[in-house]
Protein backbone atom coordinates (compact mmCIF):
# COMPACT_ATOMS: atom_id res chain seq x y z
CA UNK A 1 0.00 0.00 0.00
CA UNK A 2 1.31 3.39 -0.90
CA UNK A 3 1.34 6.33 1.45
CA UNK A 4 2.60 4.93 4.74
CA UNK A 5 3.54 7.50 7.34
CA UNK A 6 7.01 7.02 8.87
CA UNK A 7 5.92 7.92 12.43
CA UNK A 8 2.95 5.53 12.14
CA UNK A 9 5.18 2.69 10.97
CA UNK A 10 7.68 3.46 13.75
CA UNK A 11 4.95 3.52 16.45
CA UNK A 12 3.77 0.04 15.51
CA UNK A 13 7.25 -1.49 15.55
CA UNK A 14 6.98 -3.44 18.79
CA UNK A 15 3.78 -5.30 18.02
CA UNK A 16 4.73 -5.80 14.39
CA UNK A 17 8.32 -7.01 14.96
CA UNK A 18 7.75 -9.16 18.04
CA UNK A 19 4.12 -10.21 17.71
CA UNK A 20 3.16 -8.40 20.90
CA UNK A 21 -0.52 -8.50 21.81
CA UNK A 22 -2.55 -6.54 24.31
CA UNK A 23 -3.57 -8.50 27.40
CA UNK A 24 -6.52 -7.37 29.49
CA UNK A 25 -5.88 -7.51 33.21
CA UNK A 26 -9.63 -7.64 33.89
CA UNK A 27 -10.87 -10.50 31.70
CA UNK A 28 -7.49 -11.96 30.83
CA UNK A 29 -8.11 -12.14 27.08
CA UNK A 30 -5.50 -11.26 24.46
CA UNK A 31 -5.98 -9.32 21.24
CA UNK A 32 -3.76 -8.25 18.33
CA UNK A 33 -2.74 -5.57 17.49
CA UNK A 34 -2.83 -4.01 20.97
CA UNK A 35 -5.69 -1.60 21.50
CA UNK A 36 -6.28 1.15 24.05
CA UNK A 37 -9.07 -0.91 25.56
CA UNK A 38 -10.04 -4.55 25.67
CA UNK A 39 -12.20 -5.41 22.62
CA UNK A 40 -14.06 -7.97 24.75
CA UNK A 41 -14.85 -6.31 28.09
CA UNK A 42 -13.97 -2.65 27.46
CA UNK A 43 -11.44 -2.42 30.30
CA UNK A 44 -8.60 0.04 29.74
CA UNK A 45 -6.25 -1.84 32.00
CA UNK A 46 -3.82 -3.42 29.57
CA UNK A 47 -0.43 -5.09 29.62
CA UNK A 48 1.65 -6.43 26.76
CA UNK A 49 2.12 -10.12 26.08
CA UNK A 50 4.09 -11.88 23.35
CA UNK A 51 2.03 -14.30 21.30
CA UNK A 52 3.03 -17.90 20.51
CA UNK A 53 4.96 -18.24 17.25
CA UNK A 54 3.24 -21.36 15.96
CA UNK A 55 -0.42 -21.70 15.11
CA UNK A 56 -2.99 -23.20 12.82
CA UNK A 57 -4.30 -21.68 9.59
CA UNK A 58 -8.06 -21.22 10.10
CA UNK A 59 -8.76 -19.81 6.64
CA UNK A 60 -7.02 -17.94 3.86
CA UNK A 61 -7.51 -16.04 0.65
CA UNK A 62 -5.27 -15.85 -2.41
CA UNK A 63 -5.37 -12.17 -3.29
CA UNK A 64 -4.77 -11.09 -6.89
CA UNK A 65 -6.33 -7.61 -6.65
CA UNK A 66 -3.42 -6.09 -4.74
CA UNK A 67 -2.21 -2.48 -4.60
CA UNK A 68 0.65 -1.43 -6.84
CA UNK A 69 3.49 -1.99 -4.37
CA UNK A 70 2.79 -5.70 -4.01
CA UNK A 71 1.89 -6.25 -7.66
CA UNK A 72 5.20 -7.92 -8.46
CA UNK A 73 4.63 -10.64 -5.87
CA UNK A 74 0.90 -11.23 -6.55
CA UNK A 75 -0.95 -13.32 -5.74
CA UNK A 76 -0.49 -12.63 -2.03
CA UNK A 77 -1.77 -15.25 0.40
CA UNK A 78 -3.59 -13.70 3.32
CA UNK A 79 -4.41 -15.89 6.29
CA UNK A 80 -6.38 -15.99 9.53
CA UNK A 81 -4.00 -17.68 11.97
CA UNK A 82 -5.22 -19.17 15.25
CA UNK A 83 -2.46 -18.97 17.88
CA UNK A 84 -4.65 -20.43 20.62
CA UNK A 85 -4.68 -17.42 22.94
CA UNK A 86 -5.42 -15.02 20.07
CA UNK A 87 -5.86 -14.90 16.34
CA UNK A 88 -4.05 -12.71 13.82
CA UNK A 89 -4.49 -11.75 10.19
CA UNK A 90 -1.16 -12.04 8.43
CA UNK A 91 0.47 -12.88 5.15
CA UNK A 92 1.41 -16.50 4.45
CA UNK A 93 4.87 -16.64 2.91
CA UNK A 94 7.39 -19.16 1.54
CA UNK A 95 4.50 -21.06 -0.01
CA UNK A 96 2.57 -21.08 -3.25
CA UNK A 97 -1.24 -21.34 -3.17
CA UNK A 98 -1.07 -25.12 -3.86
CA UNK A 99 1.01 -25.62 -0.69
CA UNK A 100 -1.56 -24.00 1.57
CA UNK A 101 -4.52 -25.68 3.22
CA UNK A 102 -6.93 -24.96 6.05
CA UNK A 103 -5.76 -26.49 9.34
CA UNK A 104 -2.05 -26.54 8.45
CA UNK A 105 0.57 -25.53 11.02
CA UNK A 106 2.27 -22.20 10.40
CA UNK A 107 5.08 -20.37 12.18
CA UNK A 108 5.98 -16.70 12.49
CA UNK A 109 8.93 -15.30 10.53
CA UNK A 110 10.32 -11.76 10.29
CA UNK A 111 9.90 -10.29 6.83
CA UNK A 112 9.46 -7.19 4.73
CA UNK A 113 5.67 -6.72 4.67
CA UNK A 114 5.18 -3.55 2.65
CA UNK A 115 7.02 -0.89 0.76
CA UNK A 116 6.08 2.67 -0.03
CA UNK A 117 7.26 3.26 -3.58
CA UNK A 118 6.92 7.02 -3.23
CA UNK A 119 9.04 7.60 -0.13
CA UNK A 120 11.16 4.45 -0.17
CA UNK A 121 9.83 3.52 3.27
CA UNK A 122 10.05 -0.22 3.96
CA UNK A 123 7.76 -1.82 6.53
CA UNK A 124 9.02 -4.91 8.35
CA UNK A 125 6.94 -7.26 10.43
CA UNK A 126 5.71 -10.78 10.97
CA UNK A 127 4.48 -13.17 8.31
CA UNK A 128 3.71 -16.86 8.73
CA UNK A 129 5.13 -19.81 6.79
CA UNK A 130 4.17 -23.48 6.73
CA UNK A 131 6.00 -25.52 9.40
CA UNK A 132 8.33 -27.95 7.61
CA UNK A 133 7.49 -31.59 8.23
CA UNK A 134 4.33 -30.75 10.17
Amino acid sequence: MAGFSAPAVWRGRTHRYRLVAGKCTSCGKLHYPPSYSCPYCGSRSMVEAELPRVGRLMSYSVVYSVPFDSKSRAPVILGLVDLGVARVISEITDASPEDVSVGMQVEAVFRRIAEDGGTGLIVYGIKFRPVKGA
Binding site: M1, R16, V63, S65, V66, L78, I89, S90, I113
Partner: peptide, 8 residues
Amino acid sequence: MYSIGMGG
Protein backbone atom coordinates in the same frame (compact mmCIF):
# COMPACT_ATOMS: atom_id res chain seq x y z
CA MET B 1 -0.78 -3.02 6.85
CA TYR B 2 -0.83 -6.13 4.64
CA SER B 3 -1.79 -6.33 0.98
CA ILE B 4 -5.43 -7.14 1.62
CA GLY B 5 -6.39 -5.35 -1.60
CA MET B 6 -9.92 -5.85 -2.84
CA GLY B 7 -11.65 -8.76 -1.14
CA GLY B 8 -8.80 -10.26 0.88
